[in-house]
Design a protein around this nucleic acid. Structure first.
Lengths: 232, 232
DNA sequence: TTGCTTATGGAACGCCGGTCCAAATGGACG
DNA sequence: CGTCCATTTGGACCGGCGTTCCATAAGCAA
């Protein structure tokens, strides 16, 4: 296997395989069929080759999916693009861009991991850290704060988005929420005082807004500790 | 399949199978071998039966793992136990209890999902909501805030804990961090100004403290919006 | 042309999740 | 105490998966 090395020294075949090509095709298949539907046999057929050839460019399925997820993470930077913004909303915009990217490729949400080793995951953490460093925060807290934000972005996105890949595709999100809400209503209010009271909010909530609501809480906490106490 | 119904009407066999028994054995096997190592064949052998019998009590592997993860979540309540505390540290203690429970069963971290349908996931969200409701927060924000905290707890725990299940068990966590730190050091500081600067923090950080650091940021954000502005 | 490295792709291996169904079990009823 | 029947069991089996193996092809250097 070549793995880490770059392209072939020169020309190569016209129909040459490459890791980028394989990962690209994998992303398409994952979008279409989900993680369970991605198969080395199917992927090979898609690329007019055999399963064995793929293993020359990719170690195994885990690595393939990880690379595919990292490529999706790259979409977020393409959409975001502008690193030169003021601190607060810079972090906010970056976070939302990541959420949106993962939202369009739900299978990827549960495969972006930390501490990052893949290219785009590295870029993400670095950008967050750079934005955090522009705050008034003492330097020795930069790492903890940056990773906390990074963990929030990828972890909470995964929590919100992943369920969509699990549920039967035949039942819509609204129907699923309505069902869940009804089940909550049938619980004993003595055991579940909160849930039985909040079913309407469950029905009405928008995933993206919830991600942002929590994000704003987190960033508010950041500002509280960043500025010792701003004038009232 | 019986699935949702309770026990057999009366006695039943001495060596009778049950969902609890199966899930309990599954947890042991998952602790020992991880998700990939859990097999219906192996589990059946462990319980002195055949794979077919298990499917009478459990729909499929996904459900089995979800039930097992929910049982692990239950451990957190056993450790926490005291719902009658003041608001701030009540949420904090509950969150940490969940993190610790998942920390001891890493395979479970990526399988606690929301919106909850399983027993202990429901209990968790309800407790969080109840504690949030004791804050001065307006009632129409309870749902968003409670789910944000719930998402943080399960999502960030998963981010922090899950990688441990992936890495080769032969290499220690410290070695892995050292390797990663070195790779970060070798990056171009022009492309990765933050990462190349913060490798020592990566080496030294404790996972549990990082979870708590982010949690405190989030809860600070909650207090900021809860109290309009406390006296200075 | 020759020899070697790089890359291919199809056959084969071992194992898995899941289904099927013949048989065993043990109360309910007479 | 014997018969019946719903419940539950468990082993054989199926299709398909990830991965490995290896005979072969394609490009490159001499």
């Amino acid at each position: 296997m070549q793995r880490t090395r770059g392209r072939a020294p020169t020309g190569g075949r016209a129909d040459a395989l490459s890791q980028e090509l394989i990962v690209g095709a994998a992303v398409s298949l994952l979008d279409e069929l989900g993680e369970r539907g991605l198969t080395f046999r199917l992927l090979a057929k898609e690329l007019n080759t055999g399963p064995g050839a793929l293993y020359w460019h990719v170690a195994n399925k885990d690595e393939l999916v990880a690379l595919a997820a990292d490529q999706v993470l790259g979409h977020a930077f393409a959409a975001h693009a502008s690193p030169e913004e003021e601190t607060g909303s810079g972090l906010r915009a970056l976070a939302v861009a990541v959420f949106d990217a993962l939202d369009q490729h739900p299978w990827a949400a549960s495969h972006v991991s930390a501490p990052p080793t893949l290219a785009n995951a590295l870029r993400l953490l670095d950008r967050i850290g750079t934005l955090v460093a522009r705050t008034g925060l003492p330097a020795d807290r930069h790492f903890a704060v940056a990773t906390a934000i990074s963990y929030y972005i990828t972890g909470v996105s995964a929590q919100i988005i992943t369920p969509r890949t699990t549920h039967d595709a035949t039942v819509s999100r609204d129907d699923f929420l309505a069902e869940t809400a009804q089940r909550w209503e049938e619980l004993d209010p003595a055991d579940y005082p909160f849930l039985t009271r909040t079913t309407q909010h469950l029905r009405d909530h928008a995933d993206r807004d919830q991600f942002i609501a929590g994000l704003d809480m987190l960033l508010d906490g950041l500002n509280t500790t960043a500025d010792p106490r701003p004038p009232a």
